[in-house]
């Protein structure tokens, strides 16, 4: 190896394969896609290893490449999925109607429960697990969009470009995703102990 700090690429799969896979699985929620994207990442890394500057750890470097690959996949899927309607917001109307949450005066129909601020890591892990299941249950496009924003931490601007939708649409969709997730989390036990 030219770079003494560089691990032998032969060991990447053994050392990082499963970590990359878990990272991808959490975001893609699909084992086959996760495997493919890991393969893609390692092959790209091999081609690009001359550009690895040794500053970061190999793991961090590989995760960086993986993130790009996952975003590529999101983007491709967004392009391939034909827009049934130019107004994406109406495509997930079955998720909920605002009247489910608010009365005609715009007040909450039901008391909003206190989820507290769980510090306990077990409690947090449980909440994350519920959150993931709730994310899976969101309409596909909404779930992807929410994932881009909250897990990949992309800016609204980037999401607008990637998904070719207007900022207003993105904000509305994110609102819908959050309302849906909040309800799902609430129904599945967040803060149950407290209320």
């Amino acid at each position: 190896m030219n770079d003494p700090n560089m691990e032998d690429p032969e060991t990447w799969l053994d050392h990082h394969g499963s970590a990359l896979y878990r990272f991808a699985l959490l975001r893609l929620r699909d084992a086959q896609k996760a495997e493919e994207v890991v393969q893609d990442t390692l092959v790209s890394a091999l081609q690009a290893r001359a550009r690895f500057n040794g500053g970061a750890s190999v793991r961090t470097w590989l995760i960086g490449i993986l993130k790009h690959k996952i975003m590529d996949l999101f983007r491709r899927e967004a392009r391939e999925a034909p827009l049934e309607s130019p107004d994406l917001v109406s495509a997930d109307d079955e998720l909920f109607a605002e009247e489910d949450f608010f009365d005609s005066k715009g007040s909450w129909r039901e008391k909003v429960s206190d989820w507290g601020n769980p510090e306990d890591s077990l409690e947090r892990s449980q909440l994350i697990a519920i959150l993931q299941r709730c994310l899976d249950a969101l309409p596909n496009r909404l779930g992807r969009l929410f994932m881009m924003r909250e897990v990949m931490e992309e800016s609204t601007e980037t999401i607008c470009q990637e998904m070719e939708i207007s900022p207003t649409n993105v904000w509305t969709m994110l609102y819908r995703a959050r309302m849906g997730l909040r309800q799902c989390l609430d129904q599945n036990g967040a803060g149950r102990a407290r209320n």
Binding site: A19, P118, I128, A129, E150, V151, R182
Partner: peptide
């Protein structure tokens, strides 16, 4: 607070990925 917590939990899931 619920909305803020959802964000914190999701942004943490990087580190949590291992255990979760």
């Amino acid at each position: 607070r619920q909305i803020a917590l959802m964000r914190r939990l999701l942004r943490q899931s990087d580190q949590r990925a291992e255990t979760e």
